[in-house]
Write a protein that binds this DNA or RNA. Structure first.
Lengths: 350, 350
DNA sequence: TACTTTTACACAATCGATTACGCTAAATTC
DNA sequence: GAATTTAGCGTAATCGATTGTGTAAAAGTA
């Protein structure tokens, strides 16, 4: 006993499929279907437990009412929170989400984009790992709606929604410097052509410059994004045993920071006395470690919300605008930015 | 210039759609299409940048190669990690995931199930909020493949994959008791008909019984799942100011525990000296708070993996088995289970 | 040569829903 | 009573891919 289709309803009622379709789409009145007939159709629908087939409708209408979401890792709370908000907003507009993790793999990402297009998703939201934006240029040429989040490809001039990475990094680094710390390691993540990472590095560099300090390039390190837990301890060990022992860390994301914390605990390095630490990207954990970790907080939900909103607009209007949304970040001062600040906090707490 | 279809290829080559379809599906040889013709087809495909339309294929074949995933909150790291693993395994089998958050709303969940079926997803994985399993009985009757995760509906006898909640809770509670704590609050979460919560409560009760202690029902509290941050402080305030002041907490999930920690920090209640604490569900944060928080760790990735594996099997075979997978949990002892344990740890660390 | 088999492909139905267009019978108008 | 309108609905094409059936031509066989 297979699932009933519109045809079954029509046949069993002796009317046409057209009529049934009209009634089902609430267009019975405007198409002059008598109330009585409409009632009968709906009755039959209930009786046969008919449910429309979205796939068939999608084929006919040329749209799937589905949005594709590609992030590097859905289990990173940063992306998980974005995903949640995107889903909420999309659901309000009757759109559903197919999500995929690229695992920070350029080629897999392209593969995923291809696959999502074959699935006829009406638009995509992507946190990209691409180095060059060729794939996106193609999409643009086809007027295919998409929005980049978090990571931008500035040359591309495509829809984008992210945060002011430069300022965030600048503020963080400046804060450390103002607290008397100057041997500040910058822990980046691979691949280092990502706009977010580059901008954060620029912020870091600018802060040094503005404070009249020279940068020691040995303190700028790149961690393999797929091997954080293993590499961070190695790198940190190096950084604290070398001649110019670091006195602070600016970490570009939450995963690296967590790995740093782990290292500190194990090696009994005290924050903030032995080591200053500020993280880009604020997570719950930073409020509960001792001391609490200062961080640059991103307006995560806003990113997701802005991204869907732009996408929905593009999908509707079929226009090809170029929205570039850069949201401000917030410096959350806790007790990890160096001894001076730490003492101030202690005082003001009493 | 719309996207090319199989028809365009066929027409421009003067062959039939059938032929093109065969070639595209690697069934050219078995259908006796000459090598030369096959070559020409593939050439044309590349030239026109043809991409198959998954929707159309889905309609014809009656399957969408898509799995629906419903969880209560994708931004909870527990579900995010499960989702990640599910996606990984599904991707290997060429399945994609549509995910939805029910927001712990029974009716929204039913709505989502209906929607996913209309979208012709081939199977579902669900962490359900349903009180009675009527909707799932219906699915079973139709031989529709689905797997419940985390939360079970025992009467239903449907595919399920989760952990041994009873033992986990028993171990945790027993540990607290053995450490001399006896006024142990149980912080549950609404809705309290969930199998996970019920089993955890049973474990808690059994531990009391086995230790010859009586349970004080006033110490068992339910927190509204959508209002954790607000309710936990209120409840805890009550529990510590009443006559029988609690000396420990067993919290049924990570969100509640985090809220508890927040309360402790703010009220300067020291763990473990002033208060023992064990959490069901281990998260990163618990390794970094001071002291570290003991927790019952679930094999999260295994849950996801087992769930998809079962689902894929069912979708293939169209059989209707009844897999009931209960995975063991692990008690992660850290320094929060009471003073005795804590002192032992301090000693053994030196 | 006559018949059979194989090769290589085409035709048309099908999946389920939508929609431009057109038809019929009844009601209304002149 | 003929012409026109309109309410009410049906026909058939369409979306893109798959597949059972059909068939002409080439090749093989006796």
């Amino acid at each position: 006993m297979k699932k009933p289709s519109i045809k079954d309803i029509a046949d069993s009622l002796g009317v046409s499929k057209t009529l049934v379709s009209f009634v089902l789409n609430n267009r019975g009145d405007e198409n002059g279907i008598s109330k009585e007939t409409q009632r009968k159709v709906l009755e039959k629908v209930a009786q046969l437990k008919y449910h429309p087939n979205f796939i068939a409708r999608g084929l006919r209408l040329g749209r799937s009412h589905t949005i594709g979401l590609i992030v590097t890792d859905i289990s990173n709370i940063f992306y998980a929170r974005i995903a949640k908000r995107i889903e909420e907003v999309a659901a309000k507009h009757k759109y559903n989400l197919i999500y995929c993790s690229s695992g920070e793999d350029e080629f897999r990402e392209i593969e995923l984009i291809r696959m999502l297009r074959e699935r006829q998703v009406d638009g995509m939201i992507i946190s990209t790992t691409q180095k060059n934006g060729r794939i996106f240029s193609e999409l643009k040429k086809e007027h295919y709606p998409f929005v980049l989040i978090d990571r931008n490809l500035p040359k591309l001039k495509a829809n984008y929604c992210g945060v002011d990475n430069f300022s965030g990094a600048y503020t963080a680094t400046d804060k450390l410097i103002k607290n008397g710390l100057s041997k500040i390691a910058l822990l980046k993540i691979s691949p280092d052509y990502l706009s977010t990472i580059k901008n954060r590095e620029q912020g870091y560099r600018k802060a040094f410059k503005d404070n009249g300090l020279r940068i020691n390039n040995k303190l700028i390190r790149t961690i393999d994004c797929n091997n954080i837990k293993q590499e961070v301890p190695v790198v940190l060990q190096e950084l604290i045993s070398s001649n110019d022992r670091i006195d602070a860390i600016f970490s570009v994301n939450n995963s690296i920071t967590v790995a740093c914390l782990e290292f500190m605990y194990e090696n009994n390095i005290k924050i903030p006395d032995d080591m200053g630490l500020i993280s880009f990207d604020d997570i719950d954990l930073f409020s509960f470690s001792i001391p609490k970790i200062s961080a640059i907080a991103q307006p995560i939900e806003e990113i997701g919300e802005a991204a869907v909103t732009i996408l929905l607009e593009e999908m509707d209007s079929k226009t090809n605008n170029n929205h570039q949304v850069t949201l401000p970040v917030k410096f959350i001062q806790r007790g990890s930015c160096g001894t001076i600040v730490e003492k101030q906090i202690k005082l003001s707490n009493n």
